[in-house]
Design a binder for these strands. Structure first.
Length: 252
DNA sequence: AAGGATGTTGCCTG
DNA sequence: TCAGGCAACATCCT
């Protein structure tokens, strides 16, 4: 479910309920947070940062991470126990199988908004700086680094690399800076497309390489478990370039 | 129909 | 002491 664009869909869904200003009448669930801290507090806003969904009060923020299996219901319940259930006058929000944390402070002070690929504050130049601070990192790892590309998950990683024509095994240092800039732009643009296609219900139909056996040009797609976290990478060795590490750098 | 996955944390081990 | 490995979370798709 949850890469950045899916969390934006969650945020937009609850924003449409117009609950801002309503007091939290009841809060419960199996999450181990201090419910007293937020009961009766007035909802200030909903927000998201990367894969984090944020419920904002005057001086504290609930952070929900859906991890791999998390789900939610709006004005509905599932059979399983709620990890967190929030009741307002006009609506009820239920979250399942997720990580819930209560953060002190306001959302705007808690995060670097320039790293959120879905944010209007996204700053590609800042992403390039952060990338270049990790010259030896593989692109597949760098894209999943939530401090650089907050909200990018495995699907966006694979599809953005395909769009950019770069293999996951490239190190940051080996790739010309113009192509790093292109990758940063493609990642942002694919994330916007992801949001659009997810809303349309056509996300999978638009995958070029993720879970595919052949790329759009008919070449065989490789599936390999790459990087520090051994996540699945799908890539086309013909359409996507591998720069030999150290090319152009003496002594390496 | 068993196995794995759009993800992260935290515990255990060496 | 610390880095790496991997179980846990519980659901859905292939």
């Amino acid at each position: 479910m949850p890469e950045g664009p899916s969390i934006v869909i969650l945020k937009e869904s609850v924003q449409a309920l117009q609950l801002e200003g309503q007091p939290l009448l009841s809060v419960s669930g199996t999450a181990s947070i201090d419910f007293k801290r937020i009961r009766n507090q007035k909802l200030r806003s909903f927000n998201s940062w990367g894969k984090h969904f944020l419920i904002c009060f005057d001086d504290c923020t609930i952070r929900i991470h859906l991890l791999m299996f998390g789900s939610y219901r709006i004005n509905e319940r599932k059979d399983s126990k709620e990890r967190l259930s929030l009741v307002f006058k006009d609506a009820e929000l239920n979250f399942y199988t997720c990580s819930v944390k209560l953060l002190e402070g306001r959302d705007e002070d808690l995060y670097d908004w320039s790293s959120d690929i879905m944010s209007r504050h996204w700053a590609p130049a800042r992403a390039l700086e952060k990338l270049q601070a990790h010259p030896d990192a593989l692109l597949c790892d760098a894209l999943l680094d939530q401090d650089i590309f907050s909200g990018v998950g495995n699907i966006i990683k694979n599809e953005a690399l395909y769009r950019s024509g770069l293999q996951p095994y490239n190190t940051v240092a080996a790739v010309p800076v113009a192509r790093l800039r292109q990758l940063i732009g493609d990642t942002r643009r694919y994330s916007a497309d992801f949001l659009h296609w997810k809303k349309e219900g056509t996300l999978k139909a638009h995958w070029a390489v993720h879970t595919k056996k052949v790329c759009p040009k008919g070449h065989t797609v490789l599936k390999e478990y790459t990087g520090k976290t051994k996540r699945r990478s799908f890539f086309c060795p013909l359409c996507q370039e591998l720069y030999r590490d150290g090319v152009g750098k003496a002594g390496k």
